Simulated scan of single mutants.
Amino acid sequence: MVDRTACYEELQEPQKRGQATEAIIQSAFVLRDIPVLVPTYSTEPYDLVVEVGGRFYRIECKTAYRKREGTVAFETVSSQPARDGSDRCGYDGPAAYFAVYDPINDNRYLIPVSESTRDTMELRFRESTTDHRVGIDRAGEYLLDNRLEELRRP
């Protein structure tokens, strides 16, 4: 069996990891019979548009990484080149959802941008041995199939 985490770590360039994640997310939608539209230019502030229940949603794809034992995290901001260095900006407005691929557990999540935390969002996929819960969301609440079920309701 292929170790997905090792495959991702072997991709030295972050752009390649991002492209792999986008392909995995696209296929997840297609396998669920959801049309996927891809912007012609890479300068758009989102990666995909999906049509669910007759409505269109702009999606930003992200790759999760191990944060601490039992959690994964992803960045909720992008770094844009600016004249005086780089400018970190959020996705509230340009995208409606983060579609997150977790190569550690082979899970796909769909998280409303409006529910995400600033800078980094952490998802717990295993119960904590300590009672540390502040600022960490339960991964199961954002599983792709659960969220799509909600979006399909009228």
Results as ranks from 00 to 15, higher is better:
107 N>L: 11
53 G>L: 06
72 V>G: 06
47 D>T: 01
146 N>A: 14
93 G>M: 04
149 E>A: 13
50 V>C: 03
42 S>F: 07
98 F>S: 06
145 D>I: 05
117 T>M: 11
124 R>A: 13
92 D>W: 10
102 D>N: 10
55 R>I: 07
45 P>V: 03
150 E>Y: 02
140 G>S: 12
123 L>I: 02
12 Q>Y: 11
127 E>V: 09
44 E>Y: 14
63 T>S: 15
123 L>C: 09
118 R>G: 01
141 E>W: 00
154 P>D: 12
124 R>M: 10
107 N>R: 14
72 V>A: 09
40 T>G: 07
20 A>P: 03
112 P>I: 10
2 V>N: 04
2 V>P: 10
22 E>D: 12
48 L>C: 03
59 I>P: 05
31 L>E: 15
104 I>N: 09
4 R>I: 06
6 A>V: 14
145 D>L: 06
11 L>H: 04
98 F>G: 03
14 P>G: 07
91 Y>M: 04
150 E>V: 15
89 C>Q: 12
70 G>R: 06
77 V>W: 03
57 Y>V: 11
72 V>W: 00
143 L>D: 05
27 S>W: 04
80 Q>H: 07
20 A>E: 08
136 I>S: 09
5 T>K: 14
29 F>Q: 10
23 A>H: 10
132 H>V: 10
114 S>I: 13
133 R>F: 14
39 P>W: 13
122 E>Q: 14
22 E>A: 06
55 R>L: 12
54 G>N: 07
138 R>L: 13
8 Y>E: 07
126 R>G: 01
49 V>W: 07
3 D>K: 00
95 A>K: 03
132 H>F: 10
127 E>P: 04
46 Y>K: 05
153 R>H: 05
69 E>H: 00
36 V>W: 06
85 G>S: 09
37 L>C: 04
9 E>D: 13
151 L>D: 02
47 D>S: 01
10 E>P: 00
110 L>N: 08
147 R>K: 15
102 D>R: 07
148 L>I: 14
21 T>W: 02
69 E>S: 09
96 A>Y: 08
95 A>I: 03
152 R>W: 00
44 E>V: 09
5 T>G: 03
68 R>Q: 14
116 S>M: 04
51 E>P: 02
43 T>S: 12
62 K>E: 08
136 I>V: 15
89 C>K: 14
83 R>K: 12
133 R>L: 12
120 T>D: 00
107 N>S: 11
120 T>M: 08
16 K>Y: 03
109 Y>H: 06
20 A>V: 11
44 E>P: 00
29 F>G: 05
94 P>H: 05
79 S>R: 13
152 R>V: 10
68 R>L: 10
131 D>I: 00
122 E>A: 11
83 R>S: 08
92 D>T: 08
35 P>Y: 05
2 V>W: 05
60 E>V: 03
61 C>Q: 07
59 I>M: 02
13 E>Q: 13
60 E>T: 04
3 D>P: 02
58 R>P: 02
45 P>Q: 08
47 D>F: 02
89 C>T: 13
132 H>T: 09
65 Y>M: 12
111 I>F: 03
83 R>P: 02
32 R>A: 12
